[in-house]
Design a binder for these strands. Structure first.
Lengths: 113, 113
DNA sequence: GCATTGAATTGATGGTTGTCAATATAGAGG
DNA sequence: CCTCTATATTGACAACCATCAATTCAATGC
């Protein structure tokens, strides 16, 4: 249902559900998708992730420290991304390497309708 | 994270930037994209948006009140979505109608690769 | 005018978040 | 052993957020 002229489309105290009531995401999908969106909702975190994801291989943490925040803050954001399942880390000697988790962003397609 | 064989890839005190240093989002784009992600980072807000976006036309607020939270909270979330530029509202008589802003999600493509 | 209904705002509250300084942990190399 | 360097963790603090009850605003109808 689309247009409704300002004439009395609605009965008293009742409004027509013009659009499908079951439309939109279900609760479970919305919860999971919201987690991913939340993980990417910070500018610093977004830049960290896109830099990691831009690499086909892996990225050394030492290469992505220049994002304007302190080292502990970078570590904090990387942990958030890891907990959200967007990236994966691996220690090799002194350095730690990060790489994107394949298919982690497919949940976002649920929004593109 | 799993430990791997430690072959000395890095020289002492210096780490190779194997990936392009200019990769990832620039500061401005990241800031804008993060706003959109943040607007969609709440389960309730996500369901509200997807229900509005699922409609080709417009959606009456009265049709999307059943998301498990109180009426003021729904209004609060709709305001957030409006401030983020994702939806648009219009009052017609007693009821208020919402519709998605076209192309508001194109920013998200910056992350998909 | 008054009463009613739908939606937005206000105020308060408990919880979460981003940030940094300080500290801890882990490995490499004496 | 000890020192040095690279990440991670802890603790603290201000800012923000999601939620609801109470109230206000807007429009309709009597």
């Amino acid at each position: 249902m689309t247009v409704k002229t300002s004439s009395a489309v609605h009965a008293a105290g009742e409004c027509d559900d013009s659009c499908a009531p079951g439309s939109g995401l279900d609760v479970a999908t919305a919860a999971r998708a919201a987690e991913v969106f939340k993980a990417l909702s910070d500018p610093v975190r977004l830049r960290l992730y896109t830099r990691i994801a831009a690499c086909d291989g892996e990225t050394c943490v030492c290469d992505i420290q220049d994002v304007g925040v302190s080292q502990p803050t970078v570590s904090h954001h990387l942990r958030k991304l890891r907990e959200a399942g967007l990236i994966d880390s691996e220690r090799r000697g002194t350095w730690v390497y990060y790489r994107p988790v394949a298919g982690a962003l497919t949940v976002l397609d649920a929004v593109r309708h």
